[in-house]
Design a protein around this nucleic acid. Structure first.
Length: 921
RNA sequence: GGGCGAUUAGCUCAGUUGGUUAGAGCGCUGUCUUGACAUGGCAGAGGUCACUAGUUCAAAUCUAGUAUCGCCCACCA
């Protein structure tokens, strides 16, 4: 083995070996354990959020595989309608073409071509990360069988009356020219303006003033509304006003919707362009007047002067004209909420179109019940509130999109516009008795991506085809065990899966949902391309130099003016670029940071620290392997006489229990922490150091054999425990270790998970005693600035019988680790005035100074210790002096406090006495 | 407007049902090239647990309120 761990030299090797050996396929044996990968976009590349979540999923999968479960990680990619269509459109434009030059079929061919080119990018990256998925079952949401599931779902929901088509006000993206769902609209706080406009009364008796943030929609106003109880306007209800610029006369109506406190208390009502106004208009029986084309330009329903203007030009023109007419009362800045499309970033228009909807009342109740009943459990549990709130306020789901890329809606229209839904045009003709002479045209729209994603759990398991369900293990793997995902898709995906899988299979898609935090940058900012603070997980694995990183972050920016700022910030945060940490270090970092209920600030220094940890493991393994040599370890060697080995085994058992408990609760951070602590601070810092004398030439052969066995077995267990988090390096080391243990299993990836054995209290007590004495000597040595390597004697007073026995037993170990030339037990008559005194348990440890040290320094040291003891003493005394504490606290707590008090008293006395002796010198 | 979360060492975070002198990593200080490892060893310094009031023998932990920050949801033109 090399002296230093170098990830690049080992990580490439193991993945193909695992994959080719079929390590990742379900075994068909044992309890099923299944995780669904939230399918990433086919056009996408792996980002930090993926890498984080995939690491956690892979940990869970690998642990359960090692525990003997029938483990299935179902992976795949999503066709991602709008996102993919935008990417391909941009490619066409970048090549100097225009999307309009393509027919629908040509465009779709082009997208498929891109899918074939880029579809494997992200899966290749997942392999670099070590994701142990069963790639033979990889699916794409537009595969034939998954498309069949979509078709079947649509038709059945339609038959059940849960899908309907109709004219509704929807969120319309005028640039992409498609409807989008409520969820795809992000409401942003922006600074806008509020205009007050005068509407003259038809009877000439003055006017009313309305306030609006959208003056251009005035052209589609149907009435003005006031609150029914508003005294100011009571007499006006039923009267009419002249709608400026249009020549139309519109009535004044009374409606509770109006807030009399806001503005003038008069509201213009534009049903075709505002969701609230739609409701108001409907209540009062007005037909909406749509003034926009699909690109949000003014259409022919408006006066000629405005036709053809886009919505922003129209606004300017309307304001100018109103000003000229003297009808503009006021214009003032106004903080408002602007709806924007989450993909395009464009301002969304409420727009009247025919769309397909899924009725959500019944499905919503089903989805709510699945969670309320505990069949689906959120981790952390408080996410149930978010889920419940949304489910209780569901709106019907707009599923049609005016796009080309996606599942085509299985509906056909005849010449009269009658609609027929069916699995195919032939089925439609047959069912409805439509002859070949009746022309049928398929609905041009496609279904939104989340419609097919919602079926992911059961469609990937073969639904609705009974044969495929049998083959894919539908019975066995559904419900899946846990879904690992971010809170941002609880509504988009989690809720809809629960509803769809529930509705069609009567099962829940997963038993638990583990909601992860968001990966943010060092400063807590969300990572985004436009901010230029994105980290690429592959760059953390392979490393990247500063210039390349800057180039990557500043190329193809939407806002080129950000370039200088991004570059400066990047050069500040990564002055030396990013070193190659390797996939294992990145994975361990993710695990260690994965606490509950909070986002994660990704700090490179953590990654570096865990890379160092792996290096530590690497070198500890080198040490073990070096000492084991070529021989097979004697696994019958007894550890009875080897307290130190019994101790590390006992500590290992504790670590195993802790890791098991942590992982059961999805506390990857605690599991990682427990392993870090055990490996570094117990195994390396103590056991390996204590093993050195035990393996020396002059050591007891029985203890040497026991030590060798324990070194090998504990390292083996460590590698198994760490494997789910750091699979590559553990496999590499384990392959070298396994001959020593004569293990037949081919890969660590399918070796068994360690089981915790009994705790050895005796061995732990002995070793703690040993550690205390060594630490005491080391500490005194450093504080008195004695040469660390200089051998010195240690005198011991007031040893109990147990102390004496242990001193004899551990003499060599203490001398070696505390670097002492000899240990001598002396009586109380030995004056300690010339010694440094350290207290350990009941013992006084004397280090003869022989003028090596300034007495003043020793006195200062003792006074510092005395101060601490006095503080503890005071606290204990105070507690015990409190009668109510003694009366009410549990006996064990009181007894503990008494022991503590006695200990502080004794130590305080010792220190005082010793200080007195020094003073007398 | 409603909901959720956070506030603990210079930084990033643990702290399980209330019970030692509140822990870790990184950083910092001192020291050591000891045959596994300087991506290291050893030893240290560093905290009024945001604030206030309560409950309790006992509060970082429970309750109420305050402040600051973050996120989600919501139709105020």
């Amino acid at each position: 083995m090399e002296k230093t761990y170098t990830p690049e030299s080992i990580e490439q090797r193991w993945y193909p070996a695992w994959e080719q050996s079929g390590c990742f396929a379900p075994s068909g044996q044992g309890r099923p354990y299944t995780i669904l990968l939230p399918p990433p976009n086919v056009t996408g590349t792996l980002h930090m959020g993926h890498a984080f979540q995939h690491t956690l999923m892979d940990c869970l999968i690998r642990v359960h595989r090692m525990k003997g479960c029938d483990t299935l990680w179902q992976v795949g990619v999503d066709h991602a309608g709008i996102a993919t269509e935008m990417v391909v459109t941009r490619q066409i434009e970048a090549a100097g073409g225009k999307r309009d030059d393509f027919t629908r079929d040509e465009f779709i061919d082009r997208v498929w071509q891109w899918k074939h080119e880029s579809g494997s990018t992200i899966t290749a990256q997942m392999r670099r990360l070590g994701a142990s998925a069963d790639w033979s079952r990889e699916r794409f949401t537009m595969d034939d069988d998954l498309s069949e599931a979509v078709l079947e779902t649509f038709v059945r929901l339609h038959e059940q009356g849960l899908i309907y088509r109709g004219p509704r006000l929807v969120n319309w993206d005028p640039v992409l020219q498609t409807a989008i769902s409520d969820l795809e609209v992000v409401n942003q706080d922006e600074q806008g303006k509020l205009w007050s406009i005068r509407y003259p009364r038809s009877d000439g008796n003055g006017d009313v003033v309305v306030a609006t943030t959208r003056p251009e929609t005035l052209l589609g106003d149907v009435c003005v509304a006031v609150h029914p109880d508003d005294e100011r306007y009571r007499d006006l209800v039923g009267k009419t006003v002249q709608l400026p610029l249009t020549g139309r006369e519109i009535p004044i109506v009374a409606d509770e919707y109006v807030d009399p406190e806001f503005g003038t208390g008069c509201v213009k009502i534009t049903p075709a362009h505002d969701f609230n106004d739609w409701e108001v208009g409907a209540r009062h029986g007005f037909d909406p007047i749509n003034i926009f084309t699909p690109t949000a330009s003014i259409n022919d329903n408006a006066p000629e002067a405005y036709r053809g203007l886009d919505r922003f030009e129209a606004r300017d023109r309307v304001i100018a004209d109103l000003t000229e007419l003297g009808l503009l009362v006021e214009e003032k800045p106004h903080a408002m909420v602007v709806p924007r499309g989450d993909r395009s970033g464009q301002i969304i228009e409420p727009f009247l179109t025919d769309q397909w909807f899924v009725r959500m009342d019944e499905l919503g109740r089903l989805g709510l019940a699945a969670v309320e009943s505990g069949k689906v459990e959120f981790v952390p549990g408080n996410w149930i509130n978010t889920y419940r709130h949304w489910m209780e306020n569901l709106q019907d789901w707009c599923i049609s999109r005016q796009l080309w890329w996606g599942h085509r809606i299985p509906a056909w229209y005849d010449a009269d516009g009658r609609v027929y839904v069916g699995r195919s045009v032939n089925e439609v003709r047959e069912f409805h008795g439509l002859g070949a002479d009746v022309a049928l045209e398929q609905d041009p729209d496609v279904l939104e991506t989340w419609f097919s994603s919602a079926l992911w759990a059961h469609s990937t398991l073969g639904w609705p085809d009974p044969e495929r369900m049998e083959h894919e293990g539908f019975e066995r793997y559904l419900p899946t065990s846990v879904l690992v995902t971010g809170f941002d898709i609880i509504f988009f995906w989690v809720a809809r899966m629960i509803m769809m899988t529930g509705h069609f299979t009567g099962r829940v898609p997963f038993e638990q949902v583990y909601i992860t935090g968001l990966i943010r940058d060092r400063d807590g900012q969300k990572m985004s391309k436009s901010k230029g603070n994105v980290l690429d997980p592959i760059d953390l694995i392979d490393g990247i130099d500063l210039d390349a990183l800057v180039e990557k972050r500043t190329s193809a920016l939407m806002q080129p003016q950000m370039k200088a700022k991004i570059e400066a910030h990047t050069r500040d945060e990564f002055p030396d670029g990013i070193p190659a940490f390797g996939a294992d270090a990145l994975r361990f970092t993710f695990a260690a940071l994965a606490g509950h209920g909070r986002d994660i600030k990704f700090d490179l220094s953590r990654c570096e620290g865990y890379r160092n940890f792996i290096n530590k493991l690497w070198n500890a393994s080198r040490f073990v392997l070096m000492n084991l040599g070529d021989a097979v370890v004697d696994r019958s060697a007894t550890t009875d006489a080897d307290v130190i080995s019994r101790w590390i085994r006992s500590r290992l058992n504790r670590a195993i229990s802790e890791v098991d408990r942590a992982l059961a609760d999805y506390r990857f951070d605690l599991a990682a922490g427990a392993l870090y602590e055990f490996v570094w601070h117990e195994f390396c810092d103590w056991y390996l150091e204590l093993a050195k004398p035990a393996l020396a030439d002059d050591a007891d052969p029985a203890v040497a054999a026991s030590t060798k066995r324990t070194l090998a077995e504990v390292l083996d267990a460590i590698l198994r425990l760490l494997h789910p988090m750091i699979p590559f390096v553990t496999e590499e080391i384990w392959q070298q270790l396994k001959p020593s243990l004569d293990i037949e299993t081919d890969f660590l990836a399918r070796a068994s998970w360690p089981e915790a054995d009994a705790i050895d209290e005796t061995a732990e007590a002995d070793t703690e005693w040993l550690q205390a004495i060594i630490l005491a000597v080391r500490s005194a040595r450093t504080e008195l600035q004695l040469a660390p390597g200089k051998p010195m004697p240690l005198l011991i007073q007031q040893a109990t019988g147990e102390d004496r026995e242990r001193l004899t037993r551990f003499d060599a170990l203490i001398r070696r680790l505390a670097r002492l030339e000899r240990i001598e037990q002396v009586g109380d008559e030995r004056d300690s005035g010339d010694c440094a005194v350290q207290l350990a348990g009941s013992m006084r440890l004397l280090i003869p100074l022989a003028g090596l040290v300034d007495i003043g320094e020793e006195r200062a040291r003792l006074e510092k210790q005395l101060e601490r003891e006095l503080k503890g003493l005071e606290q204990a005394e105070k507690k015990l002096a409190n009668e109510r504490f003694v009366a009410n606290a549990p006996d064990a707590v009181v007894a503990k406090e008494r022991t503590r008090l006695a200990e502080h008293q004794r130590k305080t006395e010792e220190l005082k006495t010793q200080l007195e002796r020094l003073r007398q010198l």
